[in-house]
Simulated scan of single mutants.
Amino acid sequence: MSLEVEDLPAELTALRERAQALTASPMICKLLIPDAQIKYLTFDGQGATGEALEQAVRTHLDGATPYALDDLAYDWSFEAGQVHVAAVAHETLAEAEDFATLHGFAPVSFVARPAQGRFVGEPWFGETAQAARHLPEGETLERDTAPVRIIGPAPPARRHERDSRRRRNAPRRRNSARTRNARRSASAFRRRQRTGDRRG
């Protein structure tokens, strides 16, 4: 779904309802941060491992973004002696989590879907602030090794299953203030995508 649609809150509501027609479970998901918000870089690892490698990653990130190192979430991978780094600002992650939560989703982690050659596997930027609240008691997250692949639209739910789940997941009436907040959040999110603000 494009973020450039005319009524993003309505499209997100429709997306959530289609998902709810397929499962009665909460809308647990991972948030894919757009590449425009991520700083990617690659350098020669020179055989570094452990703490030496992590320090090399921090050295290459230092000054590569407008943010202090402590304000970044980052991950790295290896390929043919090269180290691929992906970094994003913590404030960008917080905004993404707030945006998803506002629209009825239950995000538990932050990841990316990098273009070919930028990273090996799926960049992992950690759990969301509310991950423990969304996960069943006693369960923990394990990162995926491969990035998300889009394989096509989900099959439609059977009618009797869809009707039953809609009754269980009937949305609460939204007041006008919540609707206005959703529209403002959607508008701000779209503006950041158009400006291509690389907040990594």
Score class of each variant (00 low, 15 high):
Gly47Gln: 11
Glu127Cys: 08
Ala24Glu: 11
Arg58Asn: 02
Thr42Val: 14
Arg173Leu: 08
Glu122Trp: 05
Gly200Phe: 02
Pro66Ala: 09
Phe78Asn: 12
Gln55Thr: 11
Pro156Lys: 08
Arg149Thr: 04
Glu79Met: 13
Asn175Ala: 05
Ile28Val: 14
Tyr74Gly: 05
Arg180Ala: 13
Phe78Met: 15
Leu61Tyr: 11
Ala154Leu: 12
Thr23Leu: 01
Pro34Asn: 05
Glu127Asp: 11
Ile33Phe: 00
Ala132Glu: 13
Arg143His: 04
Arg18Lys: 12
Glu4Asp: 15
Ile150Tyr: 15
Gly50Val: 09
Val88Gln: 13
Met1Asn: 08
Pro155Asp: 07
Tyr67Thr: 00
Gly81Met: 12
Arg180Tyr: 04
Arg165Pro: 01
Asp62His: 13
Gln193Asn: 04
Glu127Lys: 13
Phe105Tyr: 13
Phe119His: 13
Pro171Tyr: 04
Pro156Ala: 05
Ser176Thr: 10
Ala186Asn: 03
Asp75Cys: 09
Gly47Asp: 07
Arg159Asp: 06
Arg168Glu: 12
Arg180Thr: 11
Arg133Ile: 03
His103Phe: 07
Lys39Asp: 01
Thr23Cys: 04
Ser185Phe: 03
Ala132Asn: 10
His90Glu: 15
Leu12Trp: 02
Arg143Gln: 13
Leu135Cys: 06
Pro156Arg: 10
Ile151Pro: 00
Thr65Glu: 02
Ser109Gly: 14
Leu141Arg: 10
Thr195Asn: 06
Phe125Gln: 00
Phe43Asp: 04
Thr195Lys: 08
Tyr67Ser: 09
Leu12Gln: 04
Ala182Lys: 11
Pro66Glu: 06
Ala48Arg: 15
Ala132His: 13
Val88His: 10
Arg194Trp: 04
Glu137Pro: 04
Glu79Trp: 14
Glu91Lys: 14
Asp44Gln: 14
Ala96Arg: 00
Phe78Trp: 14
Pro9Arg: 02
Gln116Met: 09
Val120Lys: 15
Phe99Gly: 02
Arg174Phe: 02
Ala146Val: 12
Ala14Leu: 10
Tyr74Val: 07
Lys30Arg: 12
Pro107Cys: 01
Arg16Leu: 14
Glu122Cys: 13
Ala132Gly: 13
Ile150Ser: 09
Ala24Lys: 06
Leu12Lys: 02
Phe78Ile: 08
Thr23Ala: 06
Val148Ser: 08
Arg183Glu: 12
Pro66Tyr: 05
Gln82Phe: 12
Gly126Ala: 08
Arg183Ile: 03
Asn169Lys: 09
Asp197Gln: 03
Gly196Gln: 01
Arg165Leu: 05
Ile28Ala: 02
